[in-house]
Simulated scan of single mutants.
Amino acid sequence: MQLVSPARRGKERPENLAERIYAQLKDDIFEFRLLPGDRFSEGEIAERMAASRTPVRQALYRLEREGYLEVYFRSGWQVKPFDFAHFEELYEVRIVLELEAVKRLCERPAGELPEALEQLRRTWMVQPEERLQDGREVSRLDERFHCQLVEAAGNREMARLHAEVSEKIRIIRRLDFTQGPRVELTYEEHARILGAILSRRCEEAQLLLKTHIEVSKAEVRKITLHMLHSARQRALPAQG
């Protein structure tokens, strides 16, 4: 975990300090520097971050509200263990919302398609040499692709709920883009989904979309289990 000098701490506004601590801890969780099940105290985080307990506590409670941490009032904090059954449920909600969004988009008259679809076409329906190779950036664009599909359907509550689900599964979903072939496949699959929507082939678009999400989910689960095992193996010598 990154350490911060007292000199830098003294120059930061309290709200900025809490935000930085939050961002650092969230990154530590996402990168498996803090593992599911790991326990720690506010004092340990305050010492590592060279900060007082107040901004640390603000950051920790924010992460708890978002579902990444659990608090035990007599024994400190714990990184929430992975609950794959919960992730399965979130993926199911995501699929329902996205399939309905595709249906609504395909039912729109040709002249009423939203600009968002044209933006997505320019991003994903490109030649192989124009494709990005940075897994992190493609991961960000992939999440945006799916969110924009739902937003384009025109129901703000559907879009809000979908954004919340996307945030909750991001911790594992982004791992799909640590594998080179998955980056290439994402471009190809997104292009086929968009092509079917633009041509009003609703059932085909829905099938392509559902298959795309299901395959990604299966890959992510395998990668997550492997990374957790590897991270725990690396942690064993330090614990010994």
Rank of each mutant, 00 (worst) to 15 (best):
Q2I: 14
Q2T: 13
L3D: 08
V4T: 13
V4Q: 11
S5D: 13
A7S: 10
R9W: 12
G10R: 14
G10S: 05
E12R: 12
R13T: 15
P14H: 09
L17I: 00
R20L: 13
Q24R: 14
D27Q: 14
D28N: 10
I29V: 00
D38H: 07
R39G: 04
S41H: 10
S41Q: 08
E42M: 12
E42C: 12
E42Q: 13
G43D: 05
A46N: 07
S52H: 12
R53P: 02
E64D: 04
E66H: 04
V71M: 03
V71P: 03
R74F: 12
S75G: 09
S75P: 05
G76K: 01
W77E: 08
D83A: 04
F84H: 06
A85F: 03
H86N: 03
F87I: 05
E92L: 15
V93I: 10
V93W: 06
R94W: 06
I95E: 13
V96M: 13
L97V: 04
L105R: 03
L113G: 01
L113K: 11
P114Y: 14
E115S: 13
A116I: 11
A116S: 12
E118P: 05
E118L: 04
L120W: 07
M125G: 05
V126D: 01
P128C: 07
E130M: 08
L132A: 13
D134K: 07
D134F: 05
D134L: 10
V138A: 02
V138M: 03
R144W: 09
F145H: 10
L149S: 01
V150Q: 09
E151K: 11
E151L: 11
A152F: 09
A153T: 06
R156H: 15
S166I: 02
E167P: 01
R170P: 07
I172G: 00
I172P: 00
R174F: 07
R174P: 00
T178K: 12
R182E: 15
E184I: 05
Y187K: 06
Y187D: 12
E188F: 08
E189N: 07
H190R: 12
A191C: 00
I193L: 08
L194C: 07
L194E: 10
L198P: 09
R200N: 08
C202T: 14
C202E: 15
C202Y: 09
E203W: 08
E204P: 03
Q206E: 12
L207E: 11
L209A: 06
K210N: 01
H212W: 03
H212R: 03
E214Q: 15
K217M: 10
A218S: 11
E219P: 00
E219N: 15
K222W: 06
I223D: 01
T224A: 11
L228K: 00
H229W: 02
S230W: 10
A231F: 06
R232H: 04
Q233F: 11
A235M: 11
L236D: 14
A238R: 01
